[in-house]
Design a protein around this nucleic acid. Structure first.
Lengths: 142, 142
DNA sequence: GAAGATTGAAAAGTCAATCTTA
DNA sequence: TAAGATTGACTTTTCAATCTTC
């Protein structure tokens, strides 16, 4: 009993997988949110406005302010004024940030292979379809 | 691109479903962590030591201290001294807490039907098996 | 006034240190 | 000394209010 809930099973699996990847990333001092932020910066050519970063991370702007605070404290990102708009600030990835991104990406991919590698190709395809359906259902429900 | 990661798909689906249920629960002033804590108390016969609650919630004791602080502030739980051990404190669910639990459970089940109802019976069975496999893989990996 | 960013407060979680009792 | 709980510090997230600039 207590095990019949699809939602709790989903949340539990997500927590286990996330916990594993976070544990691996913590070895090099990264967290998943930090790695994702660095990834978005690299994808965009190493720099972006804080507001754009919030859009790309699908989160609220105050979250980015604080995430960039922590990344800046780690020396992985720097804030620069935006010459085009004095209200705006640009987050620029540093050399240390690019290095952390590369190591972190490798670790994340390796960890993911380690977890999802236990599924067959068929399982993975089925899983992707189901998870997409659930995400859509969650969003659609409002 | 960026969509080929099983982990991010899993995390995204979990976030969507959780967000939906949290939105529904917030109408009656509950959150998912609060509802789960109330459920554990009801299952155990309305009261439990804070340490036992931490075990049942699979979280750290300091988390329970603060969760019970919030539940107590909401009037859903009360702290009582443990006659058997003066170091220990017992969390007791209140009448308002039992009522919130009942309403919250109904809301959670209804929301879950709404999301998982979009899957076929086969889909649900497949999903349960996959999610269990992934959780096991995440735990096993350390 | 509206947009970009920050600040402050809150929820939820972790860890390390502390305090009281066993 | 070890166990039960709390406290303080930190991460991640949200929301509401504020400040500066457009």
């Amino acid at each position: 009993m207590g095990q019949q809930s699809g939602m709790f099973a989903l949340l539990h699996a997500a927590g286990c997988v996330e916990g594993y990847v976070e544990a691996k990333l913590s070895i090099i001092g990264l967290s998943l949110p930090k790695l994702v932020a660095l990834s978005r910066l690299v994808e965009a050519g190493d720099s972006m406005t804080l507001g754009q970063l919030a859009d790309r991370l699908s989160c609220v702007k105050s979250n980015v302010t604080q995430l960039v605070d922590r990344l800046e404290a780690d020396g992985l990102v720097m804030r620069t004024p935006d010459p085009a708009d004095r209200r705006s600030r640009i987050a620029v990835i540093t050399d240390a940030g690019r290095k952390a991104y590369e190591q972190g990406s490798r670790i994340q991919e390796e960890a993911e292979r380690c977890v999802f590698g236990l599924l067959t190709d068929d399982d993975r395809a089925t899983f992707a379809a189901l998870v997409a359906k659930l995400a859509a259902a969650g969003r659609a429900a409002h």
